[in-house]
């Protein structure tokens, strides 16, 4: 059911062109934050207004859209955005990573390796990685322009000085194509290696801050670190309690108020497709109940 009152994918064509120009520039200068005239969207800031505008600008009638929030296809934010594009663009939607041509995400990269032709659209709350130590936007822009990135290491230094190791676990800064330092949005640092030399196009949209940036396919993305404190991803002691996968990012789920808990895949599509005995076994039911 599409309302005739909406243009395809909600935004008018002029706006989409404006956003596409910003995206093209972002692709041309990997990691550089391109300003764009972010529009009011029918959802509050913080709910993915940047990502939605980028998705709207790249979506075509033949695309297959997947939307995830923290790895899950079925949480409120994901459902709402999926419904939004079903209604305004009448595109086919899916939960299967391999099937999707456009994936909008909040805070995760799917476990299944992305492939050529896919576009991953990130929702970004704060695009400026230097803001923590330098609140002046004029100064941070200058620092980017002059490649003055010592400050990023000051932040990591502070981490080690206070915690004994680099305690930043999400939104972990990366160096893109040897030029710009970039905030990868609040994905767990577990996902950082997936950005490197990725076959898919990665687009980042910050609606409130009016910035778009990009990592074109097969771009070098390096997580910042020290020689004697190299970058490391999180490791989990147990496999996923539902599908038994290892080497994936797990969420801790509290089962009851007596200390019961389980660790399960944060990527629901990956988990479902890797369960040995289908979705209706006992622990899955338990898991569904817990949610």
């Amino acid at each position: 059911m599409i309302s005739a009152a909406y243009n395809f994918a909600y935004l008018d064509e002029q706006t989409k062109r404006m956003i596409r120009r910003a995206i093209l520039k972002a692709v041309a200068i990997p990691g550089y934050q391109v300003p764009f005239a972010s529009r009011e969207m029918p959802m509050p800031y913080g709910w993915g207004t940047g990502g939605v505008q980028v998705t709207a600008a790249v979506l075509g009638p033949d695309d297959v859209l997947k939307v995830i929030d923290q790895g899950a296809d079925d949480t409120t934010n994901a459902v709402a955005i999926r419904g939004f594009f079903e209604k305004t663009a009448r595109v086919r939607t899916t939960t299967a990573t391999a099937e999707a041509t456009v994936i909008q995400t909040r805070h995760r990269i799917p476990e299944e390796p992305l492939t050529a032709g896919q576009i991953l659209v990130y929702q970004v709350p704060i695009p400026e990685p230097l803001r923590f130590l330098e609140p002046r936007e004029t100064e941070t822009r200058k620092m980017h322009a002059l490649t003055e990135y010592g400050l990023m290491h000051v932040k990591l230094y502070e981490d080690i000085a206070r915690h004994g190791h680099i305690a930043t676990t999400y939104a972990y800064p990366v160096h893109v194509a040897g030029r710009y330092v970039m905030d990868p949005s609040p994905i767990p640092k577990f996902d950082n290696p997936k950005m490197n030399d990725c076959e898919a196009l990665q687009l980042f949209g910050a609606g409130r801050e009016k910035r778009i940036y990009a990592i074109p396919p097969h771009t070098e993305v390096v997580s910042l670190d020290f020689e004697d404190h190299p970058f490391r991803v999180q490791e989990f002691a147990e496999p996923c309690a539902l599908c038994g996968s290892t080497g994936v990012y797990l969420d801790e789920v509290i089962l009851d108020d007596r200390g019961g808990r389980m660790f399960v895949c944060s990527d629901t599509d990956y988990c479902t497709s890797h369960r040995p005995s289908g979705p209706d076994d006992q622990s899955a039911a338990e898991w569904e109940n817990a949610r």
């Binding site: 003055e148 010592g150 400050l151 000051v154 230094y157 670190d225 020290f226 020689e227 004697d228 404190h229």
Partner: peptide, 17 residues
């Protein structure tokens, strides 16, 4: 320590110790 180290990090020092 970070205040003292900042200039060194700015010119490429990357060894915490």
């Amino acid at each position: 320590g970070a205040n003292v180290g900042e200039r060194l990090m700015a010119v490429g020092a990357r060894h915490y110790g």
